[in-house]
Design a protein around this nucleic acid. Structure first.
Length: 718
DNA sequence: AGAGGAATATCT
DNA sequence: AGATATTCCTCT
C-alpha cells in the first residue's frame, strides 16, 4: 500500500476549497450573503460528476472510504475503509468493527451508516441552531464505500449555519464558516469533503457561489491526482456567470493582494466586495451572531492531545465543532475580535453548536459516503476551491501540484484530514519515536526555507509503524495540524514544506488535499517501517491571506502553534483500509518564541576582578538584540539597593550569548560583603519582561561580592 | 538553503 | 505603548 494519494488539489493553492468543504458543509458558516449562495441543492447538483475518480491505486489502493466511527473510545477509533463499492450506505455508516471508530468532526453520519442527514438537499438556513444532528463526531470507523447513491442522503442536514458572516467583521463578513483553521482543511480531506459537499455547508453555499471563479472550477490545475476532482467540474454552480465573483479573477485578487491590505478588515472587505459582492451587502449591521463560529483558539488554550479522546475529549470535540462555528454568543463579534484566549471558555461551552462548521470536525463528511455522491467528491474540491477565495497561486507557491510519486495513489476514500483517527489499532501502532523540538521558526513565502523541523536532542523527528509485518511499503502522510484545544485538524496558517537536498535522507512527495499540503514518505519494511523526518519544514501563510478565504473562520494572530500529524493507511484483508494517525507535541512556530524570557545558563567566570569594567560573558537562551543586564547591589543592611545597567558589547556578542561589562560598584567604600545579583531583560517589556535572574553558583550559594579592604579591587565570587 | 536578528508594519 | 506579524538583511 503504498500510498495514498490525495486527491488532486484543486487548483487553488490556497484554496480554501477543501476547507470549505469540511467546514462549510458542516457547520456552515452562515453565508453572509445569502444571495450569493446557491442553494444547497444546487451545489449538489453541481457536483455531480462522477464519482470519484478512483484513485489510482498503486499497488494497493483502496478505494474505500473512511468511515467514521462512533465510538469514541478513547482510544481512537480506527477507520477502515471499505472498498466496497458500492454502496452508498456504507460510508459513514456502518460502524465497523471494532476498532475503530473515529470521530468525525462534524459530520453527521450515523453509525448505521445512514447519514445523519438525510435530505438530499441542504438547507441552508442560517441559524444557529444547528444541529448537527447527531453528534457528528463519532462514526464508525470503517467506512465502507458504498455506493454513491447510498450515501447521499446525508445531505440532509440542514446545516446550521450560523450566520457566518457576522463572524468577522460585519462588514466583511467572512465566509464564515467557521472552522477554524481547518476550514480549509476540512476540505483537505478530499474524500470527506466530497461527502460533505452534498451538504453544502452553509458556509459553503453562500460563499461559494461567489467564489467560484470560473477558473477554479476548472479542473485544471494540475493536479491530476486524485480526485482531481477539483477539476471537476465546474459544476454549474460554479459557473462563473453565476457567481458574482466571477468577476473577480485571480488577477483582481492579486491586485488586491498585491498590495496587501493592511488590515485584515480591509482585505476582507476587499475580498468581499470584489468577490462576493453579494456578501457585502449583507453585512448586516449586526453581525450575525454566528458568525464566526469558531472561536479562535488562542495559544493559551490548547490542550493536550490526549484529551481529545477522552470523554472530555468528546466534549472538546464538540466544542471544537461548535467553536468554530460558534456563533458567538454574543453577537457577532468578529471572531478576530475575540481573540483567542478567552474564548475558550465561554465559547467552548456552548460551542457545540452547529456542527457543521467546523471544518475540523466536520462530521458531515463522514456521513456521506463518497459513493453516494460520486460526483461530489469531485465537487468537493472543485467546489471548495471555488468557494474559497482563490488565492493567487503566486502567493501560494506551495500549492503547486506535483507529480505523483510512485508510491502514492489516490484513494478516493481516505479519511479527511480533519477526521480524528487513533494512533493504534489491533497490532498496529503509529508512534512518534522522536518528537520534534518544541520550537521551530516557520518561514514565510517571502523568505527562504528555514530548514527542516528538528528534534530537540539534535537530529530529526522519527516516526515508526509498529505491528506491521507485511512486505509492502506503506505511505506515511505528514501535514501540519493545529495544536489548540479543539479537535486536531489541518492548520490553516501553516503548511508543511518539503525539504530536499543532500542533507535530507528521506525522500518525500508532496501532494495537496484540499487546502492542505501533505508530504508522503515511504515506510519501508526494510527500515522497520521507520522514517526519519528530515524533509519537513514549516511554511507560514500570511494571516490576511488565509483569513480572506471563504469559510475560514480561524484567525491567525497568536495562532502560532502547530503539530506534525502523521497518518498511515494500512490495507486490510477484505479491501478495507485501516487508517492510523498520530500527532506530535506542539511546536511553536513564531520567531517571538525566541524572544521569550532570557535564561542565563552560565557565565564566563566564577571568580574574577570586577573593578569597574570587567567583561563577563553570559551564555543561555533567548538573548536578544536589546537584552540588558542589570546588576543589583544590596547593601549589608539589606535596605539599600542599587541597580545598574551593564554595558553590552554587541560586537562580541554571539548567538545566545551576551558580553557585558560589569559596572563599577557604587558602594565601593563599603567594606563588608555586598550581595550582588543581576538579571537579564529583553526588549522594552518591563515587569513581565524582566526576569530576575538569580545567579546560583554551582554550589548553590547566593552571589556575594566580597569587598577587600583596599576597595579598589573587588573580587567577585559567584 | 538555512539560520539568526532585526527593521517595519499591523494590530490590540 | 506593547505585542505580533512580516519582510529584509546578513552570514555561513
Amino acid at each position: 500500500m503504498p500510498s495514498s494519494s490525495f486527491p488532486a488539489p484543486s487548483k487553488f493553492p490556497l484554496g480554501p476549497p477543501a476547507a470549505a468543504c469540511g467546514r462549510g458543509h458542516s457547520a456552515g458558516p452562515a453565508p453572509p450573503a445569502a444571495g450569493t449562495m446557491k442553494s444547497a441543492e444546487e451545489e449538489h447538483y453541481s457536483y455531480v460528476s462522477s464519482g470519484l475518480s478512483s484513485g489510482l491505486p498503486l499497488s494497493t489502493a483502496h478505494p474505500s472510504l473512511p468511515a467514521p466511527c462512533h465510538d469514541l473510545q478513547t482510544s481512537n477509533p480506527v477507520i477502515t475503509v471499505l472498498p466496497s463499492a458500492g454502496h452508498p450506505s456504507g460510508y459513514g455508516s456502518t460502524v465497523d468493527s471494532g476498532s475503530a471508530g473515529y470521530f468525525l468532526p462534524s459530520g453527521g453520519a450515523r453509525p448505521n451508516g445512514a447519514p445523519t442527514l438525510e435530505s438530499p438537499r441542504i438547507e441552508i438556513t442560517s441559524y444557529l441552531g444547528l444541529h448537527h444532528g447527531s453528534n457528528p463526531f463519532f462514526h464508525d470507523a470503517e467506512v465502507e464505500d458504498t455506493v454513491p447513491g447510498a450515501r447521499r442522503a446525508p445531505s440532509t442536514a440542514t446545516l446550521p449555519l450560523p450566520s457566518l458572516e457576522a463572524y468577522r467583521d460585519p462588514t466583511c463578513l467572512s465566509p464564515a464558516s467557521s472552522l477554524s483553521s481547518r476550514s480549509c482543511n476540512s476540505e483537505a480531506s478530499s474524500y470527506e469533503s466530497n461527502y460533505s459537499y452534498p451538504y453544502a455547508s452553509p458556509q459553503t453555499s453562500p460563499w461559494q457561489s461567489p467564489c467560484v471563479s470560473p477558473k477554479t472550477t476548472e479542473p485544471e490545475d494540475g493536479f491530476p491526482r486524485g480526485l482531481g476532482a477539483c477539476t471537476l467540474l465546474a459544476s454549474p454552480r460554479h459557473s462563473p456567470s453565476t457567481s458574482p465573483r466571477t468577476s473577480v479573477t485571480e488577477e483582481s485578487w492579486l491586485g488586491a493582494h498585491g498590495s496587501r491590505p493592511s488590515s485584515p478588515c480591509n482585505k476582507r472587505k476587499y475580498g468581499l466586495n470584489g468577490r462576493h459582492a453579494s456578501c457585502s451587502p449583507h453585512p448586516s449591521p449586526t453581525p450575525s451572531p454566528q458568525g464566526s463560529p469558531r472561536v479562535s483558539v488562542t495559544d493559551d488554550t490548547w490542550l493536550d492531545e490526549s484529551t481529545q479522546f477522552t470523554s472530555s475529549a468528546i466534549v472538546a470535540a464538540i466544542n471544537a465543532l461548535s467553536t468554530d462555528t460558534s456563533l458567538d454568543l454574543g453577537e457577532g463579534v468578529p471572531v478576530k475580535a475575540r481573540k483567542t484566549t478567552l474564548e475558550h471558555t465561554a465559547a467552548m461551552a456552548f460551542k457545540v453548536e452547529p456542527a457543521g462548521e467546523d471544518p475540523g470536525t466536520t462530521p458531515p463528511a463522514a456521513a456521506f459516503s463518497p459513493s453516494d455522491f460520486p460526483a461530489f467528491q469531485h465537487i468537493r474540491k472543485g467546489a471548495f476551491c471555488d468557494q474559497y477565495l482563490s488565492v493567487p497561486q503566486a502567493s501560494c507557491p506551495w500549492v503547486k501540484p506535483k507529480p505523483l510519486s510512485p508510491a502514492s495513489y489516490m484513494s478516493p476514500s481516505l479519511p479527511a484530514l480533519d477526521w480524528q483517527l487513533p494512533p493504534h489499532s489491533g497490532p498496529y501502532e503509529l508512534r512518534i519515536e522522536v518528537q520534534p523540538k518544541s520550537h521551530h521558526r516557520a518561514h514565510y513565502e517571502t523568505e527562504g526555507s528555514r530548514g527542516a523541523v528538528k528534534a530537540s536532542a539534535g537530529g530529526h523527528p522519527i516516526v515508526q509503524l509498529h505491528g506491521y509485518l507485511e512486505n509492502e511499503p506503506l505511505t506515511l502522510q505528514l501535514f501540519i495540524g493545529t495544536a489548540d484545544d479543539r479537535l486536531l485538524r489541518p492548520h490553516a496558517f501553516y503548511q508543511v514544506h518539503r525539504i530536499t537536498g543532500k542533507t535530507v535522507s528521506t525522500t518525500s512527495h508532496e501532494t495537496i488535499l484540499s487546502n492542505t499540503k501533505v508530504l508522503e514518505i515511504l515506510l519501508l519494511p526494510e527500515n522497520h517501517m521507520r522514517a526519519i523526518i528530515d524533509c519537513a519544514g514549516i511554511l507560514k501563510l500570511r494571516n490576511s491571506d488565509i483569513e480572506l478565504r471563504k469559510g475560514e473562520t480561524d484567525i491567525g494572530r497568536k495562532n502560532t502553534r502547530v503539530r506534525l500529524v502523521f497518518r498511515v493507511h494500512i490495507p486490510q484483508p477484505g479491501g478495507r483500509t485501516l487508517s492510523l494517525q498520530v500527532a506530535s507535541n506542539p511546536i511553536e512556530c513564531s520567531q517571538r518564541s525566541a524572544q521569550e524570557l532570557p535564561l542565563v545558563e552560565k557565565q564566563s567566570t566564577d571568580s574574577y576582578l570586577v573593578v569597574g569594567g570587567r567583561k563577563m560573558v553570559l551564555t543561555g537562551h533567548n538573548f536578544m538584540q536589546d537584552s540588558k543586564v542589570i546588576f543589583v547591589e544590596k547593601a549589608p543592611d539589606g535596605h539599600h539597593v542599587w541597580e545598574m545597567e551593564a554595558k553590552t558589547d554587541r560586537e562580541l556578542c554571539k548567538p545566545n550569548s551576551l558580553v557585558v561589562e560589569i559596572p563599577p560598584f557604587r558602594n565601593q567604600r563599603i567594606t563588608s560583603p555586598v550581595q550582588v545579583s543581576f538579571y537579564v531583560c529583553n526588549g522594552k517589556r518591563k515587569r513581565s519582561q524582566y526576569q530576575p535572574f538569580t545567579y546560583l553558583p554551582a554550589n548553590g550559594n547566593a552571589v556575594f561580592l566580597t569587598l577587600t579592604a583596599d576597595t579598589e579591587r573587588l573580587r567577585c565570587f559567584f
